[in-house]
Design a protein around this nucleic acid. Sequence first.
DNA 1: CAGGATCCTAGGCGATACTG
DNA 2: CAGTATCGCCTAGGATCCTG
Lengths: 114, 114
Amino acid sequence: MPEFVFEGQTFQSPVELALHAIGGKWKMPILWRLNQRSWRYNELHRDLKRVSHKMLTQQLRELEEARLLTRTVHPVVPPHVDYTISALGRTALPAIEALRQWGLDYRATRDTAP
Amino acid sequence: MPEFVFEGQTFQSPVELALHAIGGKWKMPILWRLNQRSWRYNELHRDLKRVSHKMLTQQLRELEEARLLTRTVHPVVPPHVDYTISALGRTALPAIEALRQWGLDYRATRDTAP
DNA sequence: CAGGATCCTAGGCGATACTG
DNA sequence: CAGTATCGCCTAGGATCCTG
């Protein structure tokens, strides 16, 4: 089983790298919402109901550093910040969609499966 | 945004249900290895190098309860236990594969992307 | 409105020891 | 070999307050 080095970190496999980049409780739900249009901070905060202020900020920063989304500050008062998915972030959407579809299937078949 | 109830728990979306079932640091790597053949406990322990004894046991238990794998005990001394992916577990492999492939692509393009 | 800084605790997790 | 059980650390993350 080969090792897998990226950005100075060592992963056991591409799966672990992917989970590092978009795993965790909130990153996929965030990217998923950014499909189609930009969202503002408070919009995300309201829609991801159980996320805390601190967590949301942190996850957004990590996604930005991973270059999966773009943060745009409009210099107005009161502040106006848009989060937009990047081209790189878009490449993750099929994988997220696969997981989303599996979640649907899993719920549907989990209790009737052989 | 509709709610999504399963097994008494409330999720915001199918993505969150999927992450609940096979998210976390170890479950996908475990299921991924179980493709093709059965693995024994210590095999997994050695191969997932950084997993602790306790974590591995716990993750295997949860995957078993989610019906994604089957635990088979052979009544011999010393004990012999096989972990085999279930039919339901197999349905998750395409999604894991999508994530794995994305991990590869991400590493390849992350620093050259526009 | 967006988010930085601080404080603080529950519980996740590793380490270790023991068992059939 | 393949686990359970127990202890205790330590940090992830929630709550709260403050700012441009």
